[in-house]
């Protein structure tokens, strides 16, 4: 039965608990991750150092080497989680996530162009990835546009664009010499190795602007789940909200990819996992954001623990986890008769 607070209140409690738990998990994984590496630091010392009480050696390792890397991980995960949730809600399709739509491939094409053709610096590679992601996102939106973007068309156009860009990437790789090629392959796997404060600030600034904007439009997006007609009837300016949120999602995804490479499947899995935890319909934007952060940092910690410091890029772990999850999703959806 419904309590006196009404149904929105009841739903909120579960979502709030999920968000709180995911934040705890993400932060705990972050502390563990900071303590992990060639020089292990116990969690208690990590916390003390973070609050300014460590010795000089610990302070250097924690604040200069490992904290920015973890922050990049948290921000990238959060951006991918919320970006994925936006794409899936707009396309009304769990497969409408940036991984499938080819945004990651687009960013990769930008990065590869910089690495292979110009032997660019890491800043130039970041810029190339950002530009590649934005161009691909714009192209998908324009191609899928016909009196409004419809879910299936967006997914199909995205898959087509993704195939084209993948071919371009293959071509670029064959053109590369061995040094550039290995640099390119590492970038393409998605990794947090060697990330420093220079990557943190722009990503943090972007998230600080976009995340509140996106959350502010969350209710309109929730209405849009019921179809364009119903949401129009309820007073949602569907096209405007959709264009705004698409731009935000493309920016978030492109920036995340530029910072850490195309970390696979976080954008696909985070919203779906979050949704299964909150058990509530709707885009679940905030839970997806927290889930993305927890997933990415958790995966990085697992890869560091299992394979040693900086041995295995985080993208490998998220790829394996995400692939297994995708198969499971396909099987259960099939059983439910939806595909």
């Amino acid at each position: 039965m419904r309590g006196p607070g009404g149904l929105s209140f009841r739903l909120d409690v579960r979502a709030v608990v999920v968000v709180a738990l995911l934040l705890v998990v993400a932060l705990a994984a972050s502390v563990l991750l900071i303590g992990t590496g060639d020089f292990d630091i116990p969690a208690a010392d990590v916390l003390r150092t973070l609050f300014g009480g460590g010795n000089a050696g610990q302070e250097f390792i924690v604040n200069e080497l490992r904290l920015p890397r973890v922050l990049v991980g948290l921000l990238v995960g959060a951006a991918l989680g919320v970006g994925g949730a936006l794409f899936q809600a707009i396309s009304r399709n769990p497969l409408g996530s940036p991984d499938v739509l080819g945004l990651g491939q687009g960013a990769t094409a930008g990065a590869l162009t910089m690495i292979v053709l110009f032997s660019g610096s890491s800043a130039q590679v970041t810029f190339g990835a950002l530009a590649g992601g934005l161009i691909t996102g714009t192209a998908i939106y324009l191609l899928a546009w016909k009196r409004g973007v419809h879910g299936y068309r967006l997914v199909l156009v995205g898959i087509g664009v993704s195939a084209i860009v993948t071919a371009v990437n293959g071509y670029l790789l064959t053109r590369a010499d061995i040094v550039d090629a290995s640099r390119a392959v590492v970038w393409m796997t998605g990794s947090l190795n060697g990330r420093d404060w220079d990557q943190v600030w722009p990503l943090l600034a972007l998230c600080a602007v976009l995340v509140p904007l996106v959350l502010g439009n969350g209710r309109a997006l929730r209405m849009m789940e019921m179809g364009d007609d119903v949401s129009y009837a309820l007073g949602v300016r569907v096209e405007r909200v959709r264009a705004l949120l698409m731009v935000a999602a493309v920016l978030l995804t492109a920036a995340a990819t530029a910072a850490a490479g195309p970390v696979s499947f976080v954008a696909l899995t985070a919203p779906q996992l979050a949704r299964r935890l909150t058990r509530s319909p709707g885009p679940n934007l905030l839970p997806s954001l927290c889930m993305g952060a927890a997933l990415l940092v958790g995966a990085d910690w697992v890869s560091q623990r299992a394979f040693g410091a900086d041995q295995l890029p985080v993208g490998v772990v998220t790829g394996v986890v995400g692939g297994v999850y995708l198969l499971w999703l396909l099987v259960t959806e099939r059983k439910a008769g939806r595909i």
Binding site: R2, L7, L11, R92, E225, M226, G227, D229, V230, Y232, A233, R279, S280, P281, G282
Partner: peptide
């Protein structure tokens, strides 16, 4: 108000919601 021909009930939504 409008009751359109095509409307999508989101997955797992209850009548009250």
């Amino acid at each position: 108000g409008l009751l359109p021909q095509s409307s999508i009930a989101p997955d797992g939504i209850t009548v009250g919601d």
